[in-house]
């Protein structure tokens, strides 16, 4: 029997069109998300000035040229922040010296309590490559906004307060383009390859 050539061509054509459609949908979806303020801005479009634990001013442009890993937290956070910090310490150790050329940054969402000294003291318990940033609240807000992240002060029964905040870890390549997010407590087997991708 003769193969139904015309039909085959048709199938291939339909598949090609579908493929293009899906590709287009993906691209627009990413574009839409960026426009809708869901995806983080590229680092070169962010703007803020914060202070690290050694007192130096850090701006987003300082990160360009190196891959960047950023997360939000605060040192009065008893549950997920130490967990994220220890996860990150484990990932950095797994990646080894290769991770030296990455900016690994914790931005405090609690500048009222986290001074640069307090951040430094706290971070001394974790991987020394982790940089802690804090600063005036409007600058923190501007930084958080660039990542399309969020945070909120929540009063507690004892008169103290805690902070709700975005828990994922944001990854950018050396050109400052957003690469991916590592979700809170994401399995090591998925987290480490994501970081390696940002390092490429």
């Amino acid at each position: 029997m003769k193969p139904p050539t015309l039909m085959r061509v048709g199938v291939v054509a339909v598949a090609a069109v579908l493929f293009m459609l899906v590709l287009g949908w993906w691209q627009t979806r990413d574009g839409d998300r960026q426009a809708a303020g869901i995806l983080p801005l590229p680092i070169n479009q962010m703007s803020f000035a914060l202070t690290d634990q050694s007192g130096d001013t850090v701006q987003p442009k300082d990160w360009l040229g190196r891959p960047t890993m950023v997360f939000f937290g605060f040192t009065w956070c008893p549950d997920i922040c130490p967990t994220t910090l220890s996860d990150i310490s484990i990932w950095l150790e797994e990646i080894g010296p290769e991770a030296d050329r990455m900016n690994t940054v914790l931005i405090s969402v609690d500048p009222g309590r986290d001074t640069p000294e307090i951040l430094g003291d706290y971070l001394s318990n974790f991987d020394p490559r982790i940089i802690g940033l804090t600063g005036p609240l409007p600058q923190i807000e501007q930084a958080v906004d660039g990542f399309r992240a969020s945070f909120r002060k929540v009063p507690q029964d004892d008169g103290d307060y805690t902070m709700d905040h975005t828990a994922g870890v944001f990854l950018f390549d050396a050109d400052g383009r957003f690469v991916s997010i590592i979700d809170y407590h994401e399995d090591y087997r998925y987290a480490v390859p994501k970081i390696r991708r940002a390092l490429e």
């Binding site: 997920i80 992240a149 969020s150 929540v154 805690t162 709700d164 828990a167 809170y184």
Partner: peptide, 10 residues
């Protein structure tokens, strides 16, 4: 601790 749209609260 609960996650809502990637935001942690407790």
């Amino acid at each position: 601790t609960v996650m809502t749209d990637g935001v942690a609260s407790m």
